[in-house]
Every structure is written in structure tokens, then in C-alpha cells.
Write a protein that binds this DNA or RNA. Structure first.
Lengths: 128, 128
DNA sequence: ATAGGTGCAAAGTCTTTGCGCTTAA
DNA sequence: TTAAGCGCAAAGACTTTGCACCTAT
């Protein structure tokens, strides 16, 4: 994989960002300082970078794909109110899920867990 | 909610089918005997029926939504080879997930678990 | 030198929607 | 009767792709 200027730009942006980013949000943000950047390039790079496991592609609630710098196995919490996405540790489930796949007689290659609820920030706003 | 002929047609088809169906597959299948059926109607009915909890909308791996007659809480196994979707029992995780949401300090409303791997049928084909 | 990357715009896929007609309750 | 549903076709949202030019290696 070649490391073009655009590719570095996109990768750095993701690595230096704590949010879960959509292709479009990356495009819009980077376009501010790089007006010639095209959305197609962003999509092509996100595909390339996630194939090469430098970032992680997450298909959560259908609609929009989101990209994550956290390559570790983890779950997501999507807030019902603000739609924010937060990573959660799912190591406590690891064992049970493995057993489950054995019980179902399947050789598991991967799994995804997504919780829906109200995030801490929104919870606090309600209390006020 | 009114129970029009088309709505009954679509609901019955889902309830009498064991597969996880996409809007398009429902449309194509029903159109055979109901040539005037339109895809918009299928989408509108699927939305309506799942809002009223007669069927369940499942957004799995991003792209396409799928509809399920199984209203019980359950997980899904998507086969890496044939892309089939099978329901799996996730009751063994219930407790741990609840604890996890408490630990993360969020009021959980729902969760989804999807396993990826090789289903029994494909597994057997490989062995042969 | 050249395989791979880029911008741009067109096309693709899935889903929603506006409109005038139809139908269940 | 009338709110809700329908067919149709157009539009939306997100993503991919073809092409001619450019650039990292």
C-alpha cells in the first residue's frame, strides 16, 4: 500500500480523533484545509485502510458506516438520545460467547455487541 | 392500524417464512402472484409492522435491513461463506450484559449480538 | 517507469416520499 | 365518510466506479 499525502491526511485525522467518524464527516472536516479533496478518495482510503487493519470499519445500526481507531475487540454503546457512540469493554463476555458458539456448533470468526441506552452525558442533563 | 389486503399479504408471508427477509426479496416473491404490488408499499408496511411490533427489524452488517418474525430477544449468526442468517439463543449473556451496563453507568434499553463464522451446513459441506 | 492514487462526475443500491386514486372501518 | 393505504415514479442518502491525469516508489 502506497502512502500518499491524502492517505496520510485521512489516517492521521482518524488516529488523532476520539470520535467515531463517518466518511462524510471526515471529508467535510479535511476539506476545510484541503479544498481539492474528494469524497471518493475518502471512501477509497477508508476501505483500503480498514482492509489493511490500520483502522476499523464498524457497521452499526444499518445506515451509515463509522470508522474507529480502536482496533481492539470492543463493543459499542449508542445513545438513544444524542446518538453518540462510545466504546465499551466486552472482555467479561468473551468466555460465554465462545462457549455459545461451540454450543451452536459453529466456528466463530468474529462477533459484535452493541448496547442501546442513554449515555452518561445525557443522563446528567436529564437530572439537571 | 388498518389491515389492508397488502398488509395481510406481507405479514403472512413473513410469518410463514423461516428465513430472514429483505424488503426486496419480499417484494419479488409476492409480486409473482400480485403483479400490482409496489416496492414502496412493502417498505411502508415493513416500517409500520415493525413499529407495531408484529415483526422485528434487524439492521445487521450495515447495508441491508432484514425482517424477522422472531420477536424474542435473540442474537444472530451470519455465515461467512453462504451469508445465511440464523437466530441464536443469547440468554446466557443476559446477566453479564446487564452488569456491564450498570458498570458503564448507562441505562440500557436494548442490545444486539451478532456472531460471524461458518454455519453448520457449510461446515458439513467442507468436510465432504 | 509504472502500479497505484486522485478528482470529478456519473451511476448504483437501498430506502423514502409526494401525489392523486382507492379502501378499510 | 374519511383517515389510512396504494401504485407509481421521482428524489434522497450513502457508496462505488470509470476515466484521464498525477505521484510514490
Amino acid at each position: 500500500m502506497k502512502f500518499s499525502k491524502k492517505r496520510k491526511l485521512i489516517l492521521d485525522f482518524i488516529l488523532n480523533n476520539d470520535k467515531h467518524l463517518t466518511a462524510d464527516s471526515i471529508y467535510l472536516e479535511l476539506k476545510k484545509d484541503n479544498p481539492e479533496l474528494s469524497l471518493g478518495t475518502v471512501y477509497r482510503n477508508l476501505a483500503q485502510l480498514s482492509e489493511n487493519e490500520l483502522i476499523k470499519k464498524i457497521s452499526l445500526n444499518g445506515q451509515i458506516d463509522v470508522f474507529d481507531k480502536n482496533l481492539e475487540k470492543h463493543g459499542h454503546l449508542i445513545c438513544d438520545l444524542c446518538n453518540s457512540i462510545n466504546d465499551i469493554d466486552i472482555s467479561p463476555l468473551e468466555e460465554t460467547i465462545k462457549k455459545m458458539s461451540e454450543k451452536n456448533n459453529v466456528s466463530m470468526t468474529n462477533y459484535e455487541l452493541t448496547l442501546h441506552g442513554v449515555c452518561k452525558i445525557c443522563e446528567n442533563e436529564i437530572k439537571e
